[in-house]
């Protein structure tokens, strides 16, 4: 063994190695999802079926998309507190203009992605705290949504409804969608060469700048991607609910943050996992209502159970990370 490793006496192999701890942490989201599925199967075996999954995971698709959007922003050490109301806004556009005047609808949606990209530029150039800027934007999106649809209503375009209620053979649609989203984003962010630069921005922005890359460009790219996935999330949501409401996505902001963290991401340092984030979103979606309903948890306590599940999973992760840090 070269003397280098002994310069910092660290165990580099076996169960105490950092690689093992990281693997454990990477598996944790999957483990918690499995646990919840087992619990559901035990409580109500009939839920583990094609239709059961279709029903239980239906709302997981928009949550997963919003989580991915949030993940892009978190990758570059920022936070988006407006994704929820943005999803609501997109929902309203989808249920009104996209159906009645498709061209206008498409233009508005593309423009909203442009707004997201511009926010990334603004935050970077003026060195603004993203929390506050996106907090302000959350009012803006909600205001626009209410202007567009003062009362719940509208109707999703037929093609979208049709798409969201696809019934492919053997594997329920939400499962396929989740896999496609997870693998697609994983490839783009974790496997492409520019993806490495994007993640590097979160890890050590100065090193990226010194290597000649533009941080402005990476941030704008990530915010624009967040916008794209926010749009997809809003469309998927309206495709499922078939009509829209200005407050449709309000809960998604916090769900999305929780999903990213549950999936193994960290707020700073560019450490994120697309697959983990999708799994985190599925876990939250399942824990949110199906599990609790099957457990006969009174509705009063369902929110609390959600909080408790978050705390338990994150505490488990903290334990693993602590071992990582103590090595």
């Amino acid at each position: 063994m070269s003397a280098v490793t002994s310069a910092e006496p660290a165990v580099r192999t076996g169960w105490r190695s950092p690689a093992f701890a990281r693997m454990l942490r990477a598996l944790l989201p999957a483990l918690s999802l499995a646990l919840i599925l087992i619990a559901i199967a035990w409580l109500n075996p009939r839920a583990i079926s094609y239709f059961g999954f279709n029903l239980m995971l239906n709302l997981a698709i928009p949550i997963a998309l919003a989580t991915i959007a949030q993940m892009f922003v978190i990758t570059v050490n920022e936070l988006d507190l407006s994704i929820g109301t943005f999803v609501g806004f997109v929902g309203c556009v989808t249920a009104t203009w996209l159906r009645d005047a498709p061209l206008l609808g498409v233009i508005v949606l593309l423009a909203s992605i442009g707004v997201y990209a511009a926010l990334g530029a603004l935050i970077h150039l003026r060195n603004l705290p993203s929390i506050v800027v996106t907090l302000g934007m959350s009012f803006v999106w909600q205001g626009l949504a209410i202007l567009m649809l003062p009362k719940p209503g509208g109707k999703a375009p037929d093609w979208l409804q049709g798409f969201m209620s696809l019934k492919p053979p053997f594997v329920p649609f939400p499962v396929i969608a989740a896999i496609v989203i997870a693998l697609g984003v994983h490839f783009a962010l974790m496997r492409t060469s520019y993806g490495a630069v994007l993640r590097g921005t979160g890890g050590n922005a100065q090193a990226i700048r010194r290597a000649g890359w533009s941080i402005l460009k990476t941030k704008v790219t990530m915010f624009a991607l967040a916008g794209v996935f926010g749009v997809l999330s809003g469309m998927a949501l309206v495709g499922i609910t078939t009509s829209a409401d200005a407050n449709l996505g309000n809960g998604y902001t916090l769900l999305a943050i929780a999903g990213v963290i549950l999936g193994g991401g960290e707020f700073i340092g560019g450490r994120v996992s697309p697959i983990g984030a999708v799994i985190g979103a599925l876990t939250l979606a399942l824990a949110a209502s199906p599990l609790l309903t099957f457990m006969h948890i009174p509705p009063d306590w369902q929110v609390a159970a959600n909080g408790a599940i978050l705390i338990i999973v994150l505490a488990a992760r903290a334990l693993i990370s602590r071992r990582e840090a103590d090595r």
């Binding site: 060469s193 630069v197 890890g203 050590n204 090193a207 010194r210 560019g270």
Partner: peptide
């Protein structure tokens, strides 16, 4: 000036723009 969240190979890519 390495990015701690990236692998060794990915860090090599950061300074070598032609690795794509």
């Amino acid at each position: 000036s390495l990015c701690p969240n990236l692998t060794v190979a990915e860090n090599a890519r950061i300074t070598h723009a032609s690795l794509k």
